[in-house]
Write a protein that binds this DNA or RNA. Sequence first.
RNA 1: CGCGGGGUAGAGCAGUUGGUAGCUCGUCGGGCUCAUAACCCGGAGGUCAGGAGGUUCAAGUCCCCUCCCCGCAA
Length: 314
Amino acid sequence: MKVLFMGTPDIAAEALRALAESGECGLVGAVTQPDRPKGRGMKMIPPPVKLYAEKIGIPVFQPSTLKDGAFESELAKLSPDLIIVAAYGRILPKYVLEYPRYGCVCAHASLLPKYRGAAPINRAVMAGERLTGITAIYMDEGIDTGDMIMKIEVPIGENDCAGDVHDRLADAAGRAMVETVRMIKAGVVTRTKQPSEGATYAQKLTREDGELNFSDTAEDLHNRIRGLAPAPCAWTRTPDGKLLKIAEARVSDARSGSDCEAGTVKSLDGGSITVLCGGGSLLSITKVIPEGKGRMDAADYIRGRKIAAGDKLG
RNA sequence: CGCGGGGUAGAGCAGUUGGUAGCUCGUCGGGCUCAUAACCCGGAGGUCAGGAGGUUCAAGUCCCCUCCCCGCAA
């Protein structure tokens, strides 16, 4: 079976790898986003899927748009029987969806119909979910609204960050796609409509999503921090106005009876920065990224004397 | 050539108007204690990113060049 893969970031590259290594199908090509100027100095960075596709020697296509029909002739040449999509980052036009005999299937990183859209992993962790997963669906013209083929559940530990969950989901996405291909080949695929009830959208992350409001409870803050780690990370500001990203924290068992303002640093004991949060709850910050510096343990940050008890964050 | 921060002991930092380097932690040894991520005493550990570059009696500290790292923004 000729399969065309479409995807862009890490998690898509993992799915592609699983497919390639499974030997279940013939990969006729990988479609991914064009190289974009990224990072310091705005250097052109190729997407992970491109790197992997080149590594295993399958043709790479990076159309800047799928709408102008230029890709249509490419598609005809490749004549895939099935298109597999994973975080491609663009809506597929109708002609693409309708081209393959076996349709277009997609691995989405949530238990649909929850967390449709751009940032399902981050949003799920930020919301304090304890369970997420990969849902394999047939694509339709909506955003992650197609009929479901299968799900693989992935638990979220109470201290897991989005990166941890991402890695597990990447693995699950690969398994889901390989299994889906097998089922399609065997002709045993089932389609289940997504229930309309419980559908939510995982909006793309914005800078404001990362701002910590210490009047929230420590648990909410912890979820936000985990949901945005290891990147782009939640942030706050130190008394001198500098940006301080919070890469890792723990909810403290203790509570504070004091009536200091939320955001006040209560203690630096044990190498973590304990901050007063909403309702007297306490959050212990254990890893930070100071402005202009790299990630470091809170203990190191404290040693550099960048913060003192009584300072107010936020 | 997007904006900015930085390269000083294993780690995080300081180093004043230039005079051969300090702090906190860790580490090693010893002591105290019922006990300790506690405390006390002592030690090791740095060619201060590189350039047999410039200025100077003297440069971590000023000037020039190179390399590397990082934060922001995309």
